[in-house]
Design a protein around this nucleic acid. Sequence first.
DNA 1: TTTT
DNA 2: TTTT
Lengths: 165, 165, 165, 165
Amino acid sequence: MSLNKVILIGNVGKDPDVRYFDSGAAIASFPLATSERGYTLANGTVIPERTEWHNIVVRRDLVSFVEKWVKKGSGLYVEGKIRTRNYDDQNGIKRYVTEIHADRIEFYNNGSRPADSSTTQASTNTGNNMTQPVQPNTGYQQGGTTLQSPTAPFSESNEADDLPF
Amino acid sequence: MSLNKVILIGNVGKDPDVRYFDSGAAIASFPLATSERGYTLANGTVIPERTEWHNIVVRRDLVSFVEKWVKKGSGLYVEGKIRTRNYDDQNGIKRYVTEIHADRIEFYNNGSRPADSSTTQASTNTGNNMTQPVQPNTGYQQGGTTLQSPTAPFSESNEADDLPF
Amino acid sequence: MSLNKVILIGNVGKDPDVRYFDSGAAIASFPLATSERGYTLANGTVIPERTEWHNIVVRRDLVSFVEKWVKKGSGLYVEGKIRTRNYDDQNGIKRYVTEIHADRIEFYNNGSRPADSSTTQASTNTGNNMTQPVQPNTGYQQGGTTLQSPTAPFSESNEADDLPF
Amino acid sequence: MSLNKVILIGNVGKDPDVRYFDSGAAIASFPLATSERGYTLANGTVIPERTEWHNIVVRRDLVSFVEKWVKKGSGLYVEGKIRTRNYDDQNGIKRYVTEIHADRIEFYNNGSRPADSSTTQASTNTGNNMTQPVQPNTGYQQGGTTLQSPTAPFSESNEADDLPF
DNA sequence: TTTT
DNA sequence: TTTT
């Protein structure tokens, strides 16, 4: 009986870092900022704006989407789960990093049109013989039965799960 | 083992309808629109934009917040649950209406400042000796106006925010 | 700027109804119950348990998963969006039905093992040369680039969107 | 334009740590485990069960609820937001800790009755002249103990539930 | 450190 | 390091 669900809307702090492995697996990562606006209490205390930075990690078929479309400054909707991994730093001390493993990423309109969870899947599932827009109509999500093709066996994606980042 | 959770971001279709009852109870309701943007398929088929209208229902202490701040056109973040009620129409036929009973409402910036789930509760808890902004800094959720009582001033809660634990 | 997101955990009220169309499109639907438990107020008033029924609608690649695994009584985690459609009843009166269009379905352990959003996608993305378990390890979700195969063109899935159920 | 939302269902790893400050502020914290079940890939690779530990932090009026009811082993539903804070360790090196600041906590039935987001608020708002159950009927959320004031008894809010609007 |  |  368990659920681990994260929903974020925020802005990308810098261009994604994308890495490919010999196994064929790939991983992308980038920082995403969410902000709480500041306010003033009744007693005059000023609570300043506060920005939270999230480490977004992307695997499998989401990687190519991120590599192609996500840039510094992009406004994104991200769904995923929390994962904390640990590693030993240069002093042999165990350190922890918490990341958001994304299952779904959508562009969250920078001023223009609305986005919706439904549209996303639809317009995503294209990208073939269609002329690509300068910005994607929508987003992307993990999943899909056909990922298990011989050229991208599922086990690889999961081996990547054990990589130290 | 049950969960019934709805998260919406959209725009208010018309000014809320607010009703008060002899019992002291109050209820507010208004339509909220969420939109999926349209797109064009690879084969040229045009899928038009689609707007979904949700009946938002508000009770208890959220009512006064809605009455005061929510207007036609307001951009809102709404959390709640789905409820379908039925009634007999003029022909004695049972009819069903599905509504979203809101547990939490926040203003979702119309172009200006960001909002965050945390800020909301804070700046909501106003209504005392504080000069009211023209638009609320934030939103509201079920429960909690009385946090800003003299015995538990809000600033204290926030001082705790800086404690190393 | 829009979001329409529903998260439900509940039990299936009866075996899914599955329909196939000449276009190749398919649709499955079933009722899902979520329950609020009853309680007694301080003044002695008894608030009884309340069950909410949701109309779950499933399309595309989720259909075969549902047809194969989902049964009356199944405990499910469902993510999706709200959609209200209308039709004219036998008296020519416009009637409305609100449905949850599922983007993701997972089995939510009936007493046994925990489920998690991540696991789900993983164990789902198999189903090839693997011997099938009596009950799936997990669930399923919409998406996947390769859905747009010639035998299941995307436009068909969307034509189904206009069907009266 | 920002959202930072976490939804967890899991089990408490040890009894909460509760601290009170001179200011009157209080804070509670405890670890919560979510688990992904293991599975076997088509190629025979065994992916073991994986447990994720979350640091839950609770403030304000949620603290007393946690102190009273939450124990090691408790099955909880937790809603909140992600926050990462940093501090300098004994070697003067900056370290980071990511925590989930809870806005809402509910008991998630250990085998028995269902829970629902609505019920929660209701049965929570007790703590007056009512005999307390051994385990709370439900959960709690930020804000709102004072709803059960004489001028706004909870039963009234619920009578409104039956009004045709 | 929890649960199944 | 992003956005407003």
